[in-house]
Design a protein around this nucleic acid. Structure first.
Lengths: 141, 141
DNA sequence: TCTCTTACTGAAAAAATTTTTCAGTAATAT
DNA sequence: ATATTACTGAAAAATTTTTTCAGTAAGAGA
């Protein structure tokens, strides 16, 4: 099924901004911000508005056609740090965040990725999202 | 070593905003945005400025006393998505982002976390940061 | 304890990002 | 072809983050 069909099936229309955003991302070699996508998109279709880029990204992300990357810069939300490397567990219902230790657990996966991609992995960001014990019991999922 | 000593050793001063931000985060039960930290901090020390909260977070994060949490909302940077769940590998030098499949790799870790914390893990965000093959060869680390 | 140095501070202003509003346009079903 | 309404771009509003600057206070050294 083409992405056009996927959009249509989900009740969305196939429009110029969505087409252009997708094409820009296909040609990109690194994650792009909305501004960057807009600038590049305008070279393809000069009337493309920045607001439409925001809106297109929202729809395309919901449709699973685009993935948001979280990078060090420009994300808020802070918790207290424990010493050493920790992963973070976040409850999607109450927002509680819990740290848990462990880097070793990933070494197998990291080895595999290094072998397959040629990357040298230096650091990682792992966040697990779910429901904490109290929230599992109370109210609607 | 106390956090005050850690700051001093790293050449930073122990100041009111840093003290207040840390105290607010100690009392918080979920990740807080700079704005939220500011609002709560003012209840402890009404002259606290928002700008100082930003600056304190920056320093405390560098000192390893505070950890930034990346959440779905409010992060830019997009890449094209492949179907299904993928992790993301990002080169810190050239910015290239590569997806790689795999959720099974984490099942052991997730089981362990669920047992120890009572959370039910539904989703996760894993990003590996490192150097891609071309960047490993060229220029300064 | 006093004094000096300068890393810090809050407030205001500037810059940048994101959302809302609105009148008009164009994608799709019929 | 036509009708419906999901979409569009631009402007304005709201929000977030950074910069600037004159003054303050942390901490080193006497």
């Amino acid at each position: 099924m083409s992405w056009e069909e996927r959009l249509n099936q989900a009740g969305w229309r196939v429009t110029m901004p969505r087409r252009v955003v997708l094409r820009v991302l296909q040609q990109a070699r690194r994650p792009l911000s909305p501004q960057e996508i807009h600038a590049r998109g305008r070279r393809i279709h000069p009337s493309l508005g920045l607001v439409s880029v925001y809106r297109a990204l929202e729809v395309l992300e919901q449709a699973g056609l685009v993935r948001r990357v979280h990078r060090e810069a420009r994300c808020d939300g802070y918790i207290l740090a424990s010493p050493g490397h920790h992963h973070v567990l976040i409850c999607r219902r109450c927002g509680r965040a819990v740290e848990f230790p462990g880097a070793e657990d990933l070494s197998g996966l990291i080895d595999q990725v290094e072998r397959r991609t040629g990357f040298r992995v230096e650091d990682h960001l792992l966040q697990l999202i779910g429901l904490c014990a109290p929230c599992r019991g109370s109210g609607p999922a």
